[in-house]
């Protein structure tokens, strides 16, 4: 998991909604520039600006590099392909642009608590109310999802043990079907329990 690095820097204090919007804007601009030299200049500038923001946020360089590690050899292959086909400028552009965006996205995650981000999302969904999305219902669904993941893992472990006793541990179908059926039954019970407590998201 990408850890949250606590801090008091301006990057930390910037509201999560604004950070996400800035990231989307950066992504759009970097991909929208039509000319190669313009795009290259913008990508290098974005990379430098991102590095500066990491310093402002007080994130150690080790963590910054860790953001790029999953991307490292994808980048290496991409650069080789670009060098062979389009020349060094295109290779540099792809590397700089992808690294800048992934680093920037990593920065948002590093400087924002998940709970704050989810809260911001929930608040951001208020505009979607006329479209039929109810922020309270989305909030309930988010909370349930986070709770269900460890429950699913526990049920899967139980079923795997039961199927091993029957000599079926190699069969994915014999593992998945009982897990899904048990989860479906459990969902009905949970829904009944929520309703029995008079939960009404329409009234908040």
């Amino acid at each position: 998991m990408i850890p949250y690095v606590p801090g008091e820097s301006p990057v930390h204090r910037c509201p999560p909604g604004r950070k996400i919007l800035a990231l989307v804007a950066a992504g759009t601009v970097l991909f929208a520039l039509p000319r190669l030299d313009l795009a290259l200049a913008a990508a290098l500038l974005a990379l430098a600006a991102t590095g500066w923001l990491y310093r402002v946020a007080g994130i150690p360089g080790r963590l910054m590099l860790a953001q790029l590690r999953p991307l490292a050899w994808i980048l290496a292959v991409l650069v080789l392909v670009q060098l062979a086909l389009d020349g060094w400028q295109a290779g540099l552009l792809v590397t700089a642009r992808l690294s800048a965006l992934v680093l920037l996205a990593g920065l948002v995650t590093l400087t924002t608590r998940s709970s704050d981000l989810i809260e911001a999302l929930q608040r951001g969904l208020v505009w979607a109310k006329p479209l039929g999305a109810n922020p309270a219902k989305v909030g309930l669904a988010i909370a349930l999802t986070l709770r269900f993941i460890p429950v699913l893992a526990a049920i899967a472990a139980e079923v795997r043990e039961a199927q091993r006793a029957r000599g079926l541990e190699g069969s994915l179908v014999a593992l998945t079907v009982p897990v899904v059926v048990r989860m479906l039954k459990m969902s009905d019970d949970i829904a009944a329990a929520i309703d029995a407590r008079s939960y009404d998201p329409d009234r908040g």
Binding site: A143, L144, T145, F148, L152, M183, I190
Partner: peptide, 13 residues
Amino acid sequence: TRDIVFVALFAAL
């Protein structure tokens, strides 16, 4: 409510 629980279930799956 049942639909919401189903949505959460398949997101978790």
